[in-house]
């Protein structure tokens, strides 16, 4: 509202949609540029209200309830009764070595997802950006992993890692890695790796396609000028391509971080957080606390930790991006 009141045009406007239209027509005839469309000051709220109301009911209110739950002792068996316990849930999760293991697993999982997907995605993008026959078809087909539903991906991964007959288990045996009788997904040393391979397989196409479109902004005349000057491929990449890609890579990395922090189905369906907690990330821990241990308060506290981490990532990345923009 304050923004709108700054302009002198408000003086000629009286409330009501009809008057708004008249004012709008006058704006048009005067040929002046307006930042907003005509109508009363309530017009934007008219368009905004249904969605805003919806998000308040189905996102904001549940979120606030979850915040409140994190300070209570509430069980799934009797969810309408909550006892206020202050910060006890937070104290108990941080005192628990298993939760520290969860944080560490989450860190490893997220970092590996980001590095793996961005690194390989960049490689695939550079590969597909070159000239070769059938390029449009290749660019489409490469996105298939990302388009496949996560549930189906989990299912095929479980089958491919089947302890006896899985094709990947056969492959591992062939190269001399024995995952043991109960298979890769039940092996504490290998399970997280298997989940990472599956996750990264699914993420790489998305990163590649995004970076591929960013690559179109690389000025070709600059590349050619560098070639004329005798610059090698690596130098051209570092001096020209990388500089163009940097902001997009930063952005994709943040996106991959947030997505990996909240990824649930794939991990839950492949291992349920096991064996012996080796694939238990924050979201898995949260879900298991709520629906297996039936401790809604503890689960909510774990959720809050996840939210704080995500917020730190987002705010931190914004600060870095801003500092980088200032430097440039």
């Amino acid at each position: 509202m304050t923004e709108r009141n700054r302009g002198p045009h408000v003086l000629v406007r009286s409330p009501g949609p009809a008057a708004g239209t008249v004012a709008g027509r006058r704006d048009g005839l005067n040929g002046r540029r307006r930042r907003s469309v005509t109508g009363s000051p309530w017009t934007p709220y008219f368009f905004l209200a249904p969605a805003a109301l919806y998000l308040v009911v189905f996102q904001l209110v549940p979120l606030l309830q979850e915040v409140w739950l994190s300070f209570t002792r509430t069980t799934l068996l009797n969810p309408t009764f909550s006892a206020w316990v202050g910060t006890a849930n937070f104290q108990s999760i941080f005192a628990n070595p298993a939760f520290r293991q969860t944080l560490l697993t989450t860190l490893v999982y997220v970092l590996a997802c980001v590095v793996g997907s961005v690194g390989l995605g960049l490689g695939v993008a550079l590969l597909l950006n070159g000239r070769f026959p059938g390029r449009p078809v290749a660019r489409s087909l490469v996105t298939i992993p990302w388009a496949a539903p996560g549930i189906a991906v989990a299912l095929i991964a479980v089958w491919m890692f089947n302890p006896q007959y899985g094709i990947l288990t056969r492959l591992l045996r062939a190269v001399g890695i024995d995952p043991g009788a109960s298979g890769v997904l039940d092996n504490p040393q290998l399970a997280l790796g298997a989940i990472l391979v599956t996750t990264i397989w699914q993420l790489v196409p998305f990163v590649a396609v995004v970076l591929l479109s960013a690559l179109q902004a690389v000025p070709q005349e600059l590349v050619e000028a560098a070639q004329v000057d005798g610059a090698g491929r690596w130098t051209i990449f570092r001096v020209v391509t990388w500089q163009v890609l940097k902001p997009t890579i930063g952005l994709v990395a943040v996106l991959m971080t947030i997505w990996s922090l909240r990824r649930f189905e794939l991990i839950w369906l492949m291992t349920r957080g096991g064996p012996i907690g080796s694939t238990r990330t924050l979201v898995i821990d949260l879900y298991a606390q709520a629906f297996e241990s039936k401790q809604l308060g503890t689960a909510a506290a774990i959720g809050m930790v996840g939210i704080v981490i995500s917020l730190i990532v987002i705010v931190g990345s914004q600060l870095v991006a801003r500092a980088a923009a200032k430097e440039a």
Binding site: M1, T2, E3, R4, R35, S36, V37, P41, T43, P44, Y45, F47, L48, A52, L55, F58, Q59, L60, V61, P62, L63, Q65, E66, L69, L76, P79, T80, I258, L261, R262, F264, V283, L286, Y287, A290, L296, A299, A300, G303, G306, I307, S310, L311, I314
Partner: peptide, 30 residues
């Protein structure tokens, strides 16, 4: 449009994208 609370709405739209479904499943159940 420019309107009061626009920045807050924009932030909310971004913020909701980091919320896991598993977090809201309990309160939504209620």
């Amino acid at each position: 449009f420019t309107f009061r609370g626009k920045a807050a709405v924009g932030l909310t739209l971004l913020f909701t994208q980091m919320l896991p479904e598993a977090l809201l499943v309990v309160p939504l159940f209620a």
